[in-house]
Amino acid sequence: MDPIQLLIICAQAGMLVNLMLIAAAYMVLAERKVAAWIQGRVGPNRVGPWGLFQSFADVFKLYLKEDVVPAAADYKFHALAPIISIAVAITIYAVIPWSGPLVTIDGHSYGLAMAPQMNVAILIILAMTSVGVYGVALAGWSSNNKYSLMGGLRSAAQMISYELSMGLAVIGVVLISGSLNLVEIINSQIANGWNIMYQPVAFLIFFVTSLAETNRAPFDLPEAEPELVGGYHTEYTGMKFGLLYLAEYASMLAAGAIMATLFLGGWDMIPFVDEAALLGLAPDSIPMVVLGHITFVSKALLMVFVFIWIRWSLPRFRYDQLMNLGWKVLLPLALANIAVTGICLLLFG
């Protein structure tokens, strides 16, 4: 690999990480705004116009906070846990095809995506979500606090349970698209129509499990305030808490982007329509790629909005209900979905 290429990739990575962190911070603002609207309030409106700089104020404040570590905590793991959480979320961004290639330098083309052509992208995603458990479980365990530990344990149990259904739901998509490469999957959707039309059940399962994997309501048992004070992040302060908090929103955005990729046709604007031909542009031309990127991000953000909307609409599940849903409903449903998909492919494919 030549040095220029390395430099460009590094710059690209830096830009992506920063963009995504800012996006995550803004999602916190979005969450507060949506919550406010649903509750008939205004929401943050004091920092900047419509409260737009609230996110910066929040992060700035978190940086200035004292970092309190409980005396009985395991300091190394206590510090490591938030790093794992945020790192996992950001790693997933690397394989997400944010856009097609925008520029070509020295015969290499670069877009906003870091490694769109990776042929095991889906496996990376599933692997990374599994590693995400460590962040939460370690945070809970190393705090040496009963509430934190309970939150961490719940989180571990929940994530392991729902990972199964999530993986199985993705298999339906893989069966149809015939590839683990995300760009390939998008291209197959542009050609054949969005996967949500063929795999509605898989989409539903994936959506529900994504909620659970990101510890979002109604599956936010690891941080259930009424029972567990703050759950796994009870003993975190300052920017360590900030990282755990941002990781949740970063994962949310990642989940939204993955759903956009797997089920909602990626950067395809309208299913079954060749937009490039309609607009009279070449499919790889810059305006088309930018339009595609905007489409992709809009789809991801729409999913994020639904996540937030759900949080302020539905009450939290009880732990046994959570397990029942995961093992007795979603898992059989996902298995059935694979079987039906396989049979249909055999018969009509």
Binding site: V34, W37, I38, R41, W309, S313
Partner: peptide, 20 residues
């Protein structure tokens, strides 16, 4: 669930009660 979500979505379009 859809009904509930519909309710909250409608609520989003209502005017707010907040006093500045």
């Amino acid at each position: 669930i859809a009904r509930g979500m519909g309710l909250t979505f409608k609520q989003m379009l209502q005017p707010t009660f907040t006093r500045q």
